[in-house]
Structures are given as C-alpha cells and as structure tokens.
Amino acid sequence: MSETTRNGATPLVQLAPDAMTPIPRGPLPILPSRPSKMIDLTVDGRAVSVPEGATLIEATRRLSIDTPTLCFLENLTPVNVCRICVVELEGSRALVPSCSRKAEAGMKVLTDSERVRLSRRMVLELLASSVDVSTAPQFQEYMRRYGAHPERFGAAAAPANEGERDAAVPGRHHTGHGHSAATAASVAQPVKVDNDLYVRDYGKCILCYKCVEACGEDAQNTFAIAVAGRGFDARISTEYNVPLTESACVYCGNCIGVCPTGALMFKSEFDMRAAGTWNETAQTQTNTICPYCGVGCTLTVHVQADKIVKVTSPMEQPVTNGHLCIKGRFGWEWVNQR
C-alpha cells in the first residue's frame, strides 16, 4: 500500500523545459579527489601500507589479522574503552588501542605477543566475571581464543535489586571495608522492560558506550541515554533513570543495532527467548528496502517460520550506515498480523 497519491505526481527537478526530446547524455560527475599518502609500518614482522589517517586496526585487517573488538564499530567514533584490541607498539610503555591509534610511518606493532594476549585475556575475564555474556557469541569465541577463565575471580555476587545499581553514589564504595570478599561483584540486575519495542538488560552490559554514541552524535542525535555514575557503578541511564517512555527516546533502536552483547534486545526476540522459541539457526536474513519514506533504507529482515522476528540494517550501507528509524526497525508488525 504505497500511497503514491500524496505526491505521486510531485513536480520533478527539471532543468530543461518540459522536454519532449530527451536531454542528451552529459559528462560524468566530477568527484572530489581524496588523495592520500600511504604510511608504511610493520605488523608482526610483516610490512603493510595504509592510507594516512588510518588506524592500526586497519593495518592489521589488511594483513587479515583478526583483531578482537568490543567497543569498536566502523560507523561510530572510536571510544577505545574496552581495551581488547590493544597491541604492543615498539617504544610505547603501555599497550595501545589499535581501534583509535593512528598508524605512523615506521611503527613496529605486535598483535599476538604474550603481553597482548595477557591483557586481552584479562579484559575478557574481568568482563565475563562481572557481566552475563550468554547472548554474546562473538565474546564467547574470544574467550575460547584467549583461554579466558573468569572463574579465577570467584563466584559472581548475588544480583542487585531493581534500581539498586541506578541508585549508586559516586565514590562511596569503601564504606564496605572488610565486607565479605567471597564473591565477585557483578552488574547482574533485573531486566528493564518499559515499552513494547525493546528491553534493556543491563546485567549484560559491558559498558562499551556504543549505544550512547548511536543515540548521540554518531547517528540519532537524540541523546536519551548517557553514562551515569562512576567506576564499577558506571552505567547507561536516562536522566534520573526515568523509564524510556518519559525520556527523549524515539525508539529508533539504533542502540540495539550496535549492542554487542544482547543487553539491548527487540522485545520480540526477548519474548521468544523467554518462551524458548528463538532459534537463530532456523532464521533467514534478507536485505530489502524499507517500505515507508523515500530515503531508501536497506532493511535486513530476520525471518523465522515465515514471521519477521526482527529488523536490522547493514553497517556498511551508504544510505543508513546501519541506522534506522522507528518505522523501519519496528513498523513491520502488520506483516505478521495478516
């Protein structure tokens, strides 16, 4: 039902009078030249060249080295907070984050040294001992790759009550002097379900900042969420932890699109998982175009048993850069209802 009446006959941009004869084929558009100098460096003893301004992770990718990332996405500004992508750079006292460190001529980089492996393993263990990573398959693959054993830090502490982590006060942990150290602190807490479109399960949040970036300047510019609190109590929050329905949220779901752990999840997926019917192996993913406005956003339609179960968009797509609006991401319910 594309209701073309509304502007089906919109006047067209015609830079010639109502041409009965076609306008002749013109020259090709002149695109801005983007010259770029190449930078030579060495990664794991292998020479590689990258364009000026490229980061070390691009250099590793050119050599088909699979550098693990959690907080990095090509369509977001690197925040370099997860530190799993660190590499060893000759001459640097500490390891450097490959996602944001710009390549410089003559750099010598090691991506799989013992130091690198130790830090990556530790990052995985620190996260997995404090966060539920059960819906983060990529994360689990990294754990296998680096031999992570989060249980070294002890059994996870009991989950927080609803709102408890949101009420934490910065700088006030130490009142717990000498409290029981038998368990490892974790971010486990009840799931926040305050609308029909998506849920926020912050017990699965590794605080990668991606959702904040997608809600903010990198995509949606709605700024409904930010990081609040400090230290281990830092968390993603609306102002005063108000429900999404009172916040600035416009339900574009771009935060879900970038979440690496399933902390942000379509309600449809959340409900199916709860019911035990979610089955990714039985799902297909098909790229098509959004049926609503004329922008032409690519939708990846996830289908299970002839029902749409969620919609995403490819990150490398030039129209969307992986981002959608509420209609594209959630406005498909009617297809299932027929």
Binding site: E3, R6, N195, L197, T245, K327, W332, W334
Partner: peptide, 18 residues
Amino acid sequence: RLDSYNTGVQTGRYASPG
C-alpha cells in the same frame, strides 16, 4: 509524525510507545 505513516494502515499496527 515520526512514528506513523500516511493513513496509518501499516504503522497503526505496531505499538509505538511515543
């Protein structure tokens, strides 16, 4: 408006919280 489309035949059928 943001969450709706034309005569609402399609968009009227999902639960937009806003």
